[in-house]
Design a protein around this nucleic acid. Structure first.
Length: 564
RNA sequence: GUGCCAGUAGCUCAGCAGGAUAGAGCAACGGACUUCUAAUCCGUCGGUCGGGUGUUCGAAUCAUCUCUGGCACGCCA
């Protein structure tokens, strides 16, 4: 048993179902079709430890008011073998359950037993899932959108792993296609500008204007001189791209590592073209009638796939679009590599691509639902209280590298994981740079450091924690103690909910709640100096808190300092 | 114009398989360190859940209309 919550949910469901059966047998309730019985933790403590709204859910079938149904059920309840102490009918027909405190003490036993594996659940049951995120264009530096996607994707992967999925983190390298062309043209222009003068060589209007392009051109020139001047434009660009692209990819890799993000797979788009996988996918679609030809280009047949419009797969110059490559890429994920599920994290500006990617899996016999896209709203930067436009092209945007230098990995990751992916994120650069005390990451880290400090101090005085089995946990009765244990017991359920909703930010907020409950406990109760028995019980509680906080901070890859 | 996302306390956001008196942090104000870290705690103040209509026993949550902001509608990715 990993989760006390599951156990209790099971007990309550059984008690309720048995009561329904008993009522039916007595003929006081009609035969009722029961779907899932929702067991939840009520907001108000005064409404019991757990509650269910089942009586309201079945009110139509029962043909009587919910409260009446609830009362009939209560009269048939049998609590033997459960944690349930008593129950009551409340409000419009809720059934509130009050449990013996054993369940809380038992949850401490689970934490002590599981240690750093506490919170692991079997939701995923080994399902193979591919989480692809960041996948930034290697034509320039990582921006704030990549930063948000990186934190979200990495933490989502961790959550899914914790939930029992077989997770692969993947970065799709866009090392082919139009952008690379543009990259080459931009590099070429900067290179020639060095040799012929800036006013002699026109820079392409849609070229990448960033300083990094100039840096690459300068570096190449420094190493090799003007040897490219005589080459054909095509060859010149290829040489410059082959020079600069690996450097960019290496840099992206290094920065992401510094950000705490490391991948299992770096997947090259170019390899799909070179292996013929892109052509194969296109041919398959053509042969099976999923395309139309217009203006010498091959289009995906939108009508046939239930899409709003057709999409170009092969341009009239014979070069496939990014979408053709993307189809081949996802074919590779599902069929070639056998992933059951693929999750992509995309900036919200790509939302138009979601429906067509899902739909274009169908011809291959892949259910589009196996592809899940988490869209996150783009980050808005504020400087001096004003909106700062971020753009690769101006070269003025703050990059992930800048951010890490200014606020550090911990604050950045925590910040990006504080809000749900769907909400806009206003990033106040001034505040982030300040690294002030209202930064919530310190609040959580401080709780951890406080615990470690306390345990350290006890150890210095020769007080060693006892095994939980020889400790009387029932001495933990204070309100703050109970609330803290209650919160700790919710962890596995939080993992389940985070995984189901694909929202790792939920865990970030949860760990803040734990820290808050701990700080309240710390101010209300003493550990050192209390009677031996009580002190030992509190040491267990404090240690369990440490385990859970550390567990979550490790999951989101934020330092859990032992001293601050 | 069409589509997607968002609109909840002064600010930043939770809540949204419909449920009980809508929550938290920050800010503001008032308290708590001779005792395990005051980077902390306790308390007070603060809301027409953008607006309308509908569905129902019951709506912040669902439907529909509308307003506002962001984004997308390319032989770019």
């Amino acid at each position: 048993m990993n989760s006390i919550f599951e156990k209790i949910e099971g007990q309550i469901c059984k008690v309720v179902k048995d009561a329904f059966t008993a009522c039916e047998n007595k003929g006081i309730l009609p035969k009722i079709q029961i779907e899932d019985i929702l067991v939840e933790v009520p907001r108000e403590r005064g409404f019991g430890d757990f509650s269910t709204n089942i009586a309201m859910q079945v009110s139509k079938q029962a043909k009587m008011p919910p409260r009446k149904t609830a009362e009939l059920l209560v009269s048939e309840f049998n609590f033997s073998g459960t944690y349930i102490e008593r129950t009551e009918v409340a409000g419009p027909g809720f059934l509130n359950f009050y449990l013996r405190k054993d369940w809380l003490y038992d949850s401490l036993h689970i934490i002590q037993e599981k240690q750093d594996r506490y919170g692991e659940v079997e939701l995923g049951k080994g399902i193979k899932v591919n989480v692809e995120f960041v996948s930034a264009n290697p034509t320039g530096p990582l921006h704030m959108g990549n930063a948000r996607g990186g934190a979200l994707g990495d933490c989502l992967a961790s959550v899914l792993k914790k939930a029992g999925y077989d997770v692969t983190r993947e970065f799709y390298i866009n090392d082919a296609g139009n952008q690379i062309e543009k990259f080459g043209i931009s590099l070429e222009a900067r290179y020639l500008q060095i040799i012929h003068g800036e006013d002699k060589v026109e820079f392409p209007e849609d070229g990448y204007q960033g300083e990094d392009i100039k840096d690459h051109a300068r570096a190449y020139f420094k190493e090799n001189g003007d040897i490219l001047v005589e080459k054909s434009a095509e060859e010149r660009r290829k040489i410059l791209v082959d020079y600069a692209l690996p450097l960019n990819i290496k840099k992206i890799r290094e920065i992401l590592e510094a950000y705490g993000v490391s991948y299992d797979v770096w997947f090259s788009e170019k390899s799909l073209h070179e292996s013929g996988a892109v052509k194969k996918a296109i041919d398959f679609l053509i042969e099976n009638g999923y395309t139309v030809t217009k203006d010498d280009a091959v289009w995906l047949n939108g009508e046939k796939l239930g899409l709003e419009k057709d999409e170009v797969l092969v341009r009239n110059n014979g070069i496939p679009t990014y979408m053709a490559a993307d189809i081949a890429y996802h074919y590779n994920k599902f069929i070639t590599r056998g992933f059951d599920w693929a999750i992509n994290l995309w900036g919200a500006d790509h939302h138009g691509h979601v429906a067509r990617m899902k739909a274009s899996m169908e011809p291959f016999g892949i259910n589009g639902d196996r592809l899940e896209v988490v869209l996150f709203q783009l980050v808005r930067l504020y400087r001096n209280g004003e909106l700062a436009r971020m753009s690769k092209r101006t070269g003025k945007a703050i990059s992930l590298e800048d951010l890490l230098e200014e606020v550090g990995k911990d604050a950045a990751r925590f910040f990006f994981n504080l809000k749900t992916s769907g909400s806009h994120l206003d990033f106040d650069l001034d505040l982030a740079v300040k690294q002030s005390n209202d930064n919530p990451v310190f609040y959580v880290q401080y709780a951890h450091a406080r615990i470690c400090s306390l345990l350290r101090k006890l150890k210095e005085e020769g007080i060693e924690p006892k095994s939980i089995d020889s400790v009387d946990l029932t001495l933990l009765q204070e309100k703050e103690e109970i609330e803290l244990i209650r919160k700790l017991s919710e962890y596995p359920e939080e993992v389940v909910q985070s995984a189901k909703t694909l929202e790792p930010s939920r865990l970030t907020r949860y760990v803040m709640d734990i820290a808050a409950n701990f700080h309240s406990f710390y101010n209300a109760c003493r550990v050192k100096g209390e009677d031996e028995e009580l002190m030992m019980a509190r040491i267990i509680l404090v240690d369990c808190t440490r385990i859970v906080i550390k567990n979550i901070l490790e999951l989101i890859k934020i330092e859990a300092p032992e001293k601050m």
